[in-house]
Design a protein around this nucleic acid. Structure first.
Lengths: 240, 240
DNA sequence: CGCGTTATTGATTAGTCTCAATTCAGGTGG
DNA sequence: CCACCTGAATTGAGACTAATCAATAACGCG
């Protein structure tokens, strides 16, 4: 249940600043930093590897960590009192996770694929932000974007039918995994997780998928693989 | 001496900064400003009065304005292609509205009650923020809170039953309108709007309300008035 | 190749939406 | 001040969507 720190490995690099050759150097909030700021930050962070299915912060536990996703994809989720789960966000490389500035957002962060995250203790990160206002603005922009995404998802959850929701998710996945018409992508989500994200039962998700297959707008070559053979049509279904 | 403050406020001499006696001075993002910053900002903003039902920015139109709510309550909403509406947020006095930094969030802002908003042209506001990093952090905190709220709402929309949703809304309304057990509050939302917020049909909302009345945990003395006679019980229903 | 897990498919049920009919509240004009 | 009118809210009946329960089928892994 609890995070096993033994399974988490710390990154290397001491002489050279490891941030310089970070895979998300140009996209994450660190992009706004000067070389000096970057140097300081590099001493605060450490790389953590998480295996698929592993939780990163535990819900309702003091969320002491914040960080940037370097590789892989993770889900943010909450639960109702009686155990129903809702995924409230999917994070991709260069996305920021965690809640700076004291308060706590009560979300579980779980790796959907094997992932690498550059983490900071929140206190140290907060202090660093105070003296580097560039990063603050980067964080603000990113948070505003997240807010827009969350609100867009509210529309989906509140007003779209099951079929429309599944189509929307497939379209978004194809886009974010840079697929195209006829190009195969590998979904990072199980059917159960798709259900938890869309507010649907697993069977409902499955049925929608087979319906799309029968309509000839997607192919499902087994497992989590997906080919959108008629992306415009899928988009039309998603639109509502 | 020459200039009279025209339509907007005051009545106390022009040497005095109108922001000083603003109703949300201590709570809005302006709270973080120095007297000098406040002085500058006061020249950029103007007060706008909106009547109940009036829209403030129009969806998909270039959202040129941002601002602080001074009085009243407003809703943020989006629509599907075929006209289904979803309310994605309710804003209260001291809340910030609008999307700074270029991009556009495509939300309609409509007054739920008569309201007063302190608005800024976005370009001017953005520029002001760049030279006043205090306001940036205030905005960031506020946006992080909004994000948490939106994600909490995703749980509600994705996983709670109709009854649980309505109970949740009533609890939240009682809290934000500082009601208590047995204290009457006046809901700012019509049944239709409650439905648009909860992702439910108007009839379903109505039925849930009468069920609560029959259970003896609320009273509905007509109109939009509400008395939670057993708030703990209502909370229990909401919990799910 | 067999086993456990995950996904699909089917039958039934529960919950919510839709359509339709009153009832109620609030504002208007006589 | 009251009767009326209009929009909002409630209530009821039936239709439909998606959840649940249950039984295969496909996959992934040792």
């Amino acid at each position: 249940m609890l995070l096993e720190s033994s399974s988490l490995t710390t990154g290397t690099g001491r002489a050279h600043n490891p941030c310089e050759e970070c895979s998300v150097r140009g996209d994450a909030i660190c992009a706004s930093l000067s070389p000096v700021g970057l140097e300081t930050l590099s001493h605060l962070g450490r790389r953590v590897h998480v295996r698929r299915g592993q939780a990163l912060f535990w819900e309702s536990e003091e969320s002491v960590l914040v960080g940037n996703v370097l590789e892989g994809m993770l889900k943010l989720s909450t639960m109702t009192g009686d155990g129903r789960e809702q995924i409230v966000g999917i994070v991709f490389p260069s996305d920021f996770i965690g809640r700076p500035f004291g308060s706590n957002s009560h979300h579980t962060v779980t790796a959907l694929t094997d992932a690498t995250v550059c983490v900071f203790r929140r206190g140290a990160f907060d202090k660093f932000v105070e003296t580097n206002s560039g990063i603050e603005q980067a964080l603000l922009r990113r948070t505003l974007d997240e807010l827009d995404r969350a609100r867009h998802w509210m529309l989906l959850l509140g007003r779209l039918s099951a079929t429309e929701r599944v189509a929307s998710l497939l379209v978004e996945m194809v886009e974010r995994l840079d697929g195209a018409n006829g190009k195969e992508v590998s979904l990072p989500l199980s059917r159960q997780q798709m259900g938890d994200l869309l507010g649907l039962a697993i069977e409902t998700v499955s049925r929608a998928m087979t319906r799309f297959k029968q309509m000839g707008i997607v192919e499902l070559p087994g497992g989590r693989r997906l080919i959108a053979t008629d992306l415009p049509a899928l988009r039309r279904v998603a639109a509502g």
